[in-house]
């Protein structure tokens, strides 16, 4: 019997905001902390915590620098992060398809 799609969901990636961070970061070379905060409508503290979780799992790389005198933090998705995002999206789509197929 085929494994249920929920088995493919990764707890680190599946959380809604972390999934959002990975989705946005995967669209670019790197994305700035402030952009993520405004796009995902998160507080700085909340976003920092989610980024720390993703960084610890090796799914994103964080780079700190300066734009003039302004400190800036950039987030880039790693190859492992890209693969994890692709797997998560595939699992989510499989779940939706399964749900649609089970409708009378």
């Amino acid at each position: 019997m085929a494994e249920h799609p929920t088995a493919a969901l990764d707890d680190v990636v599946h959380q809604k905001h972390r999934l959002g961070i990975l989705t946005v970061a995967a669209e670019a070379k790197r994305v700035e902390f402030g952009y993520l905060r405004s796009t995902l409508e998160l507080t700085a503290g909340n976003l920092s915590r989610h980024i720390a979780v993703l960084e610890q799992a090796g799914l994103v790389a964080v780079e700190k620098g300066y734009d003039g005198r302004r400190p800036r933090t950039w987030v880039a998705v790693t190859p492992a992060g890209r693969a994890a995002l692709a797997a998560e999206m595939a699992a989510l789509r499989a779940l939706v398809e399964r749900h649609v197929a089970s409708q009378p």
């Binding site: 959002g20 989705t23 669209e27 999206m89 989510l92 939706v96 749900h99």
Partner: peptide, 20 residues
């Protein structure tokens, strides 16, 4: 779940537009 996929598609679209 479909809503979540829709939200993610919106995020992706916005990120692409902002990069243009």
């Amino acid at each position: 779940m479909a809503d979540l996929l829709g939200d993610l598609a919106d995020l992706r679209r916005r990120a692409r537009e902002d990069r243009h």
